[in-house]
Design a protein around this nucleic acid. Structure first.
Lengths: 147, 147
DNA sequence: GCCATATAATACGATACCCGTACAATATGT
DNA sequence: ACATATTGTACGGGTATCGTATTATATGGC
């Protein structure tokens, strides 16, 4: 059973990655841009260097990514009040509908899937996904730390 | 609860994507290369054009990806017997240990997670993941079809 | 307060990637 | 048999990523 989950998980990973790619193409963004936008949205306003650490990318690469995201109106760069060298990147919520429209098909399918489960089962699933995401973060950090 | 799952799912997607990136970097491969290798392994020997369709990429892009995968010994290109224009790409299983070693950390964490669930719960989870992967494929296809 | 050092973000240039087009080889249909 | 379609790849252009250098600001020692 563990093997079946592993298999589905890998399959899920690649499918979500391909979906990400398609959505990125529609918005004239790279897939990594969408990833970064998600990180910015989730981890709140943060600095380019902080984002670089989270995404495991070179700071100079982040500059290019932010240029694209900013010129598309997805984020804004603000001066940090307390440290005038620093920049705070903030997601522009009013741009969200454009993203959600592209996720609409996926969301609809997911709602149908949710409908087929008991609340208690959904709880188990949510917990599992959270644990798995944390495991992914741990494994990623371990790889990037050990050089 | 559905919202919690959606949140965790997005988080999981990005974490797995970042893990993919780290692993790709260790193997001197692009992230998309790993995705393609996975597709080749899962969908069996298939043609470059078939792979291009599955991955939503331009055929010429696939050529470059296969060049990298082949020079690294991850896949081989074989002539198709029945159609001499065509090529069959086959994954090289003897290269798998090198991949698994990089996934070792993630696999260990996953095994710990599995251990915390009943068999019946794992069944629910496996089923959910499979459905979600299918939903992802459907949503991706819908986006790439509609232009 | 002053100066050396550290840190943040980005500009710039080199390398590599992705894709549109062209092309050679082979298959298919009339 | 010959026109057309299809497969895979070579080639060139535009662009992304990253290493390094640079500018601006912060921090710590004296």
């Amino acid at each position: 059973m563990a093997a079946a989950i592993g298999k589905s998980l890998r399959e899920l990973a690649i499918q979500l990655s391909l979906l990400n790619h398609q959505i990125g193409a529609r918005l004239e963004l790279q897939d990594v841009d969408i990833d970064c936008l998600d990180l910015i949205d989730r981890l709140g306003p943060l600095s380019p260097s902080g984002l670089a650490r989270q995404a495991g990318l070179h700071p100079a690469t982040i500059t290019g990514i932010l240029d694209r995201l900013e010129s598309g109106g997805w984020v804004v760069r603000e001066r940090d009040q307390s440290d005038r060298r620093a920049v705070l990147v903030r997601a522009q919520r009013d741009r969200y509908p454009d993203l959600m429209r592209l996720y609409a098909g996926m969301n609809r399918s997911m709602n149908e899937i949710y409908a087929g489960y008991e609340e208690s089962e959904l709880e188990v699933i949510a917990d599992f996904l959270q644990r798995t995401a944390n495991a992914g973060r741990g494994a990623t950090d371990a790889l990037s730390d050990n050089r």
